[in-house]
Amino acid sequence: MLLLPIHFDENEWFVIMALFLLTLGLIIFRNVLSSAVIVAVLIYFATIGKWTDYVVGIKFQHYLALDTFKQDLFDWLCLEIAYPLIGYFFVNFLASWKLKGMFTILYIFLWSILLVFSEWIASLFNVFIYIRWNLLYSFIVYFSVLSLCILYLKLIQRVYCSSLQK
């Protein structure tokens, strides 16, 4: 059962604004991926975000997300909608700019910095309250998750091409 927020304050408004901007981006930017790959990418980011949050944030309580160590409605919206959309933009721009080799690593690095920056802004709105956590750890997590995403994407595209040939 999803819980409702304890207090509806600045962090919930931040989530609503973030969701609005991400949806706006979805309308503005041109999609270059196939539907099956989009679904695969959205699911990857939702799942990895949920498990990371479950282990690091909830179980080991390294940070407090949205006022509670439980999972409320806005946590769920963040994990199931906002994170996958961010992941979608990451993959969509990567595919549209056709980056390869060292440029991919640079791209992951820049995205990790962008995500750390957006997390810092979120922490100003008390979306995250750090207990035994800091932005350097976040950077390491983002860099690992995005690098893993590239491998996942390559695997997906390889098997997707073979499925189309059959």
Partner: peptide, 13 residues
């Protein structure tokens, strides 16, 4: 194979 990969990730969620 693509269905297996995506299904495992989806069910994990």
């Amino acid at each position: 194979k693509i269905e297996v990969i995506v299904l495992i990730v989806f069910i994990s969620n």
